[in-house]
Design a protein around this nucleic acid. Structure first.
Lengths: 136, 136
DNA sequence: AGTGCTGGTCTCTTTTTGAGACTAACATAT
DNA sequence: ATATGTTAGTCTCAAAAAGAGACCAGCACT
Protein backbone atom coordinates (compact mmCIF):
# COMPACT_ATOMS: atom_id res chain seq x y z
CA UNK A 1 0.00 0.00 0.00
CA UNK A 2 2.88 2.29 0.73
CA UNK A 3 5.03 0.82 -2.00
CA UNK A 4 2.64 2.33 -4.51
CA UNK A 5 3.43 5.82 -3.29
CA UNK A 6 7.14 5.19 -3.14
CA UNK A 7 7.14 4.18 -6.78
CA UNK A 8 5.34 7.32 -7.77
CA UNK A 9 7.77 9.41 -5.86
CA UNK A 10 10.54 8.55 -8.24
CA UNK A 11 8.69 10.32 -11.02
CA UNK A 12 7.66 13.29 -8.96
CA UNK A 13 10.80 13.56 -6.90
CA UNK A 14 11.39 16.76 -8.79
CA UNK A 15 8.71 18.50 -6.75
CA UNK A 16 10.11 17.78 -3.38
CA UNK A 17 12.54 19.99 -1.60
CA UNK A 18 14.94 17.08 -1.63
CA UNK A 19 15.15 14.41 1.01
CA UNK A 20 18.93 14.70 1.32
CA UNK A 21 19.03 18.06 3.00
CA UNK A 22 18.36 19.92 -0.26
CA UNK A 23 16.44 23.15 -0.47
CA UNK A 24 13.89 24.66 -2.78
CA UNK A 25 16.43 25.46 -5.46
CA UNK A 26 16.92 21.75 -6.03
CA UNK A 27 13.56 21.59 -7.73
CA UNK A 28 13.82 23.30 -11.11
CA UNK A 29 10.12 23.42 -11.74
CA UNK A 30 9.17 25.04 -8.48
CA UNK A 31 12.14 27.38 -8.54
CA UNK A 32 11.43 28.70 -12.04
CA UNK A 33 7.66 28.39 -12.27
CA UNK A 34 6.99 30.16 -9.01
CA UNK A 35 8.97 33.11 -10.30
CA UNK A 36 6.48 33.64 -13.10
CA UNK A 37 3.37 32.39 -11.31
CA UNK A 38 2.73 35.73 -9.73
CA UNK A 39 -0.37 37.75 -10.15
CA UNK A 40 1.32 40.22 -12.49
CA UNK A 41 4.29 38.46 -14.12
CA UNK A 42 2.50 36.95 -17.10
CA UNK A 43 0.70 40.23 -17.67
CA UNK A 44 3.93 42.23 -17.82
CA UNK A 45 5.66 39.59 -19.91
CA UNK A 46 2.84 39.79 -22.43
CA UNK A 47 3.10 43.56 -22.55
CA UNK A 48 6.88 43.57 -22.92
CA UNK A 49 6.71 40.83 -25.56
CA UNK A 50 4.96 43.31 -27.79
CA UNK A 51 7.58 46.00 -27.41
CA UNK A 52 9.73 47.68 -24.75
CA UNK A 53 7.90 49.91 -22.34
CA UNK A 54 8.78 52.52 -19.80
CA UNK A 55 7.72 52.34 -16.18
CA UNK A 56 4.96 54.89 -16.47
CA UNK A 57 3.66 53.38 -19.69
CA UNK A 58 3.29 50.00 -18.01
CA UNK A 59 1.53 51.61 -15.10
CA UNK A 60 -1.00 53.22 -17.42
CA UNK A 61 -1.31 50.06 -19.50
CA UNK A 62 -2.20 47.93 -16.48
CA UNK A 63 -4.08 50.46 -14.40
CA UNK A 64 -4.96 48.24 -11.47
CA UNK A 65 -1.44 47.20 -10.60
CA UNK A 66 -0.11 49.17 -7.68
CA UNK A 67 3.09 51.10 -8.24
CA UNK A 68 4.67 49.06 -5.51
CA UNK A 69 3.87 45.73 -7.16
CA UNK A 70 4.92 47.02 -10.57
CA UNK A 71 8.31 47.94 -9.18
CA UNK A 72 8.67 44.65 -7.41
CA UNK A 73 7.47 42.40 -10.24
CA UNK A 74 9.75 44.13 -12.76
CA UNK A 75 12.62 43.79 -10.31
CA UNK A 76 11.97 40.07 -9.91
CA UNK A 77 11.64 39.52 -13.67
CA UNK A 78 14.91 41.35 -14.15
CA UNK A 79 16.60 39.29 -11.47
CA UNK A 80 15.53 36.05 -13.12
CA UNK A 81 16.98 37.30 -16.40
CA UNK A 82 13.77 37.76 -18.38
CA UNK A 83 13.77 41.54 -18.46
CA UNK A 84 16.41 44.15 -19.20
CA UNK A 85 16.27 47.50 -17.45
CA UNK A 86 17.86 50.49 -19.14
CA UNK A 87 18.08 53.93 -17.61
CA UNK A 88 18.21 56.94 -19.91
CA UNK A 89 19.80 60.04 -18.35
CA UNK A 90 17.07 62.40 -19.50
CA UNK A 91 15.44 64.96 -17.23
CA UNK A 92 13.59 63.53 -15.51
CA UNK A 93 15.37 60.20 -16.08
CA UNK A 94 13.38 57.54 -17.86
CA UNK A 95 13.70 53.79 -17.54
CA UNK A 96 12.91 51.35 -20.31
CA UNK A 97 12.10 47.71 -19.74
CA UNK A 98 12.50 45.11 -22.50
CA UNK A 99 12.63 41.35 -22.83
CA UNK A 100 15.98 39.60 -22.93
CA UNK A 101 16.66 36.59 -25.13
CA UNK A 102 15.91 34.38 -22.16
CA UNK A 103 12.67 36.27 -21.63
CA UNK A 104 11.61 35.84 -25.24
CA UNK A 105 12.49 32.16 -25.00
CA UNK A 106 10.33 31.75 -21.91
CA UNK A 107 7.51 33.73 -23.44
CA UNK A 108 7.08 31.09 -26.16
CA UNK A 109 5.49 28.45 -23.94
CA UNK A 110 3.89 31.12 -21.75
CA UNK A 111 2.16 32.50 -24.80
CA UNK A 112 0.75 29.05 -25.58
CA UNK A 113 -0.80 28.95 -22.14
CA UNK A 114 -2.21 32.44 -22.56
CA UNK A 115 -3.74 31.46 -25.87
CA UNK A 116 -5.33 28.44 -24.25
CA UNK A 117 -6.79 30.75 -21.63
CA UNK A 118 -8.33 33.01 -24.25
CA UNK A 119 -9.75 30.07 -26.16
CA UNK A 120 -11.18 28.25 -23.16
CA UNK A 121 -12.32 31.13 -21.02
CA UNK A 122 -15.99 30.35 -21.54
CA UNK A 123 -15.52 26.69 -20.64
CA UNK A 124 -13.86 27.65 -17.36
CA UNK A 125 -16.56 30.16 -16.56
CA UNK A 126 -19.22 27.58 -17.28
CA UNK A 127 -17.49 25.06 -15.01
CA UNK A 128 -17.47 27.62 -12.22
CA UNK A 129 -21.14 28.37 -12.68
CA UNK A 130 -22.04 24.68 -12.52
CA UNK A 131 -19.84 24.15 -9.47
CA UNK A 132 -21.22 27.14 -7.61
CA UNK A 133 -24.77 26.07 -8.40
CA UNK A 134 -24.15 22.60 -6.99
CA UNK A 135 -22.57 23.75 -3.75
CA UNK A 136 -22.47 27.29 -2.45
CA UNK B 1 3.26 61.44 -26.66
CA UNK B 2 0.04 60.15 -25.28
CA UNK B 3 -1.18 58.90 -28.62
CA UNK B 4 1.54 56.27 -28.50
CA UNK B 5 0.06 54.76 -25.39
CA UNK B 6 -3.47 54.95 -26.69
CA UNK B 7 -2.51 52.96 -29.77
CA UNK B 8 -0.86 50.28 -27.70
CA UNK B 9 -3.87 50.00 -25.49
CA UNK B 10 -5.91 48.55 -28.32
CA UNK B 11 -3.66 45.50 -28.35
CA UNK B 12 -3.47 45.14 -24.60
CA UNK B 13 -7.02 46.14 -23.87
CA UNK B 14 -7.51 42.53 -22.93
CA UNK B 15 -5.60 43.07 -19.72
CA UNK B 16 -7.60 45.88 -18.38
CA UNK B 17 -10.62 45.47 -16.18
CA UNK B 18 -12.61 47.08 -18.95
CA UNK B 19 -13.13 50.77 -19.38
CA UNK B 20 -16.87 50.39 -19.90
CA UNK B 21 -17.76 49.41 -16.38
CA UNK B 22 -16.56 45.84 -16.89
CA UNK B 23 -15.02 43.73 -14.19
CA UNK B 24 -12.15 41.30 -13.90
CA UNK B 25 -14.06 38.50 -15.60
CA UNK B 26 -14.04 40.51 -18.82
CA UNK B 27 -10.36 39.77 -19.20
CA UNK B 28 -10.02 36.10 -20.17
CA UNK B 29 -6.30 35.95 -19.63
CA UNK B 30 -6.33 37.32 -16.13
CA UNK B 31 -9.42 35.39 -15.16
CA UNK B 32 -8.05 32.03 -16.27
CA UNK B 33 -4.32 32.46 -15.76
CA UNK B 34 -4.62 33.71 -12.23
CA UNK B 35 -6.55 30.57 -11.37
CA UNK B 36 -3.53 28.42 -12.21
CA UNK B 37 -0.82 30.88 -11.22
CA UNK B 38 -0.93 29.82 -7.62
CA UNK B 39 1.96 28.46 -5.71
CA UNK B 40 0.64 24.90 -5.83
CA UNK B 41 -1.67 24.62 -8.85
CA UNK B 42 0.91 23.68 -11.45
CA UNK B 43 2.47 21.24 -9.04
CA UNK B 44 -0.81 19.43 -8.42
CA UNK B 45 -1.74 19.53 -12.10
CA UNK B 46 1.56 17.85 -12.92
CA UNK B 47 0.96 15.18 -10.30
CA UNK B 48 -2.60 14.50 -11.42
CA UNK B 49 -1.56 14.47 -15.10
CA UNK B 50 0.42 11.36 -14.32
CA UNK B 51 -2.46 9.52 -12.73
CA UNK B 52 -5.34 10.08 -10.31
CA UNK B 53 -4.35 10.48 -6.69
CA UNK B 54 -6.06 10.43 -3.35
CA UNK B 55 -5.88 13.30 -0.90
CA UNK B 56 -3.39 11.65 1.42
CA UNK B 57 -1.23 10.50 -1.47
CA UNK B 58 -0.93 14.06 -2.76
CA UNK B 59 -0.09 15.26 0.72
CA UNK B 60 2.77 12.75 0.97
CA UNK B 61 3.86 13.43 -2.60
CA UNK B 62 4.24 17.16 -1.98
CA UNK B 63 5.30 17.13 1.65
CA UNK B 64 5.68 20.86 2.13
CA UNK B 65 2.18 21.82 1.11
CA UNK B 66 0.00 22.45 4.12
CA UNK B 67 -3.14 20.39 4.42
CA UNK B 68 -5.10 23.61 4.34
CA UNK B 69 -3.61 24.75 1.03
CA UNK B 70 -3.95 21.28 -0.48
CA UNK B 71 -7.66 21.30 0.30
CA UNK B 72 -8.10 24.79 -1.02
CA UNK B 73 -6.05 24.41 -4.20
CA UNK B 74 -7.81 21.17 -5.12
CA UNK B 75 -11.12 22.87 -4.44
CA UNK B 76 -10.23 25.77 -6.73
CA UNK B 77 -8.98 23.45 -9.48
CA UNK B 78 -12.22 21.51 -9.20
CA UNK B 79 -14.27 24.68 -9.39
CA UNK B 80 -12.52 25.79 -12.57
CA UNK B 81 -13.27 22.41 -14.10
CA UNK B 82 -9.75 21.01 -14.29
CA UNK B 83 -10.10 18.38 -11.60
CA UNK B 84 -12.75 15.79 -10.80
CA UNK B 85 -13.35 14.79 -7.18
CA UNK B 86 -14.78 11.36 -6.50
CA UNK B 87 -15.68 10.07 -3.07
CA UNK B 88 -15.56 6.32 -2.42
CA UNK B 89 -17.80 5.14 0.45
CA UNK B 90 -15.12 2.99 2.02
CA UNK B 91 -14.34 3.04 5.74
CA UNK B 92 -12.77 5.43 6.24
CA UNK B 93 -14.04 7.12 3.07
CA UNK B 94 -11.41 7.90 0.45
CA UNK B 95 -11.45 10.68 -2.10
CA UNK B 96 -9.81 10.44 -5.48
CA UNK B 97 -8.81 13.42 -7.57
CA UNK B 98 -8.30 13.15 -11.33
CA UNK B 99 -7.97 15.46 -14.32
CA UNK B 100 -11.02 16.22 -16.42
CA UNK B 101 -10.86 16.60 -20.20
CA UNK B 102 -10.60 20.34 -19.71
CA UNK B 103 -7.78 19.79 -17.23
CA UNK B 104 -5.88 17.55 -19.65
CA UNK B 105 -6.40 20.14 -22.37
CA UNK B 106 -5.00 22.89 -20.17
CA UNK B 107 -2.12 20.73 -19.06
CA UNK B 108 -0.80 20.59 -22.64
CA UNK B 109 0.49 24.18 -22.75
CA UNK B 110 1.26 24.12 -19.01
CA UNK B 111 3.50 21.14 -19.59
CA UNK B 112 5.39 23.05 -22.28
CA UNK B 113 6.10 25.77 -19.76
CA UNK B 114 7.20 23.25 -17.16
CA UNK B 115 9.55 21.67 -19.64
CA UNK B 116 11.02 25.05 -20.43
CA UNK B 117 11.57 25.53 -16.72
CA UNK B 118 13.44 22.26 -16.40
CA UNK B 119 15.56 23.00 -19.45
CA UNK B 120 16.46 26.56 -18.50
CA UNK B 121 16.76 26.27 -14.77
CA UNK B 122 20.51 26.81 -14.81
CA UNK B 123 20.21 29.90 -17.00
CA UNK B 124 17.76 31.47 -14.56
CA UNK B 125 19.93 30.61 -11.59
CA UNK B 126 22.93 32.10 -13.32
CA UNK B 127 20.99 35.28 -14.08
CA UNK B 128 20.06 35.58 -10.42
CA UNK B 129 23.64 35.11 -9.32
CA UNK B 130 24.85 37.82 -11.68
CA UNK B 131 22.09 40.18 -10.61
CA UNK B 132 22.68 39.63 -6.91
CA UNK B 133 26.40 40.16 -7.35
CA UNK B 134 25.81 43.48 -9.10
CA UNK B 135 23.41 44.89 -6.54
CA UNK B 136 22.54 43.38 -3.19
C1' DA C 1 -9.05 0.83 25.78
C1' DG C 2 -5.72 2.73 22.96
C1' DT C 3 -3.81 3.81 18.46
C1' DG C 4 -4.07 4.86 13.73
C1' DC C 5 -6.20 5.75 9.38
C1' DT C 6 -9.37 8.64 6.40
C1' DG C 7 -10.23 13.71 4.59
C1' DG C 8 -10.84 17.38 6.03
C1' DT C 9 -11.99 22.17 9.23
C1' DC C 10 -10.72 25.85 12.72
C1' DT C 11 -7.70 29.09 14.75
C1' DC C 12 -3.55 31.68 15.14
C1' DT C 13 0.67 33.68 13.25
C1' DT C 14 3.52 35.13 9.58
C1' DT C 15 4.06 36.58 4.93
C1' DT C 16 2.43 38.88 0.88
C1' DT C 17 -0.22 42.32 -1.38
C1' DG C 18 -2.66 46.67 -1.97
C1' DA C 19 -3.63 51.88 -1.22
C1' DG C 20 -1.84 55.84 -0.91
C1' DA C 21 1.35 59.49 0.79
C1' DC C 22 5.94 61.13 -0.01
C1' DT C 23 10.57 62.14 -2.48
C1' DA C 24 13.95 65.04 -5.63
C1' DA C 25 15.19 67.33 -9.60
C1' DC C 26 13.87 69.46 -13.43
C1' DA C 27 10.24 71.48 -17.23
C1' DT C 28 6.54 74.09 -18.23
C1' DA C 29 2.73 77.26 -17.25
C1' DT C 30 1.04 81.48 -14.83
C1' DA D 1 8.88 84.01 -9.09
C1' DT D 2 5.72 80.56 -7.98
C1' DA D 3 2.71 76.79 -8.82
C1' DT D 4 2.13 72.52 -11.08
C1' DG D 5 3.36 68.32 -13.53
C1' DT D 6 6.58 64.79 -14.87
C1' DT D 7 9.96 61.09 -13.99
C1' DA D 8 10.66 56.39 -11.26
C1' DG D 9 10.43 55.00 -7.48
C1' DT D 10 10.32 54.26 -1.79
C1' DC D 11 7.87 54.15 2.77
C1' DT D 12 4.19 53.16 5.84
C1' DC D 13 0.13 51.08 7.25
C1' DA D 14 -4.01 48.14 6.44
C1' DA D 15 -5.99 44.06 4.29
C1' DA D 16 -5.66 39.65 2.29
C1' DA D 17 -3.45 35.26 1.66
C1' DA D 18 -0.64 31.47 3.17
C1' DG D 19 1.52 28.38 6.63
C1' DA D 20 1.60 25.65 11.23
C1' DG D 21 -0.62 22.89 13.87
C1' DA D 22 -4.54 21.42 16.88
C1' DC D 23 -8.83 19.25 16.40
C1' DC D 24 -12.86 16.32 14.51
C1' DA D 25 -15.89 11.87 13.57
C1' DG D 26 -16.14 7.21 12.27
C1' DC D 27 -14.32 3.00 11.89
C1' DA D 28 -10.43 -0.99 11.97
C1' DC D 29 -6.94 -3.29 14.28
C1' DT D 30 -4.57 -4.69 18.54
Amino acid sequence: MDGKIVNLRSKLEIYKAGSGGGNLADCPVRDVIQGISNKWSSLLMEALAEKPYRFGELRRLVPDISQRMLTQTLHDLQRDGYVHRQVFPTKPPSVEYSLTDLGRSMFGPLHQLIQWAELNHSAVREARKVFDAAEG
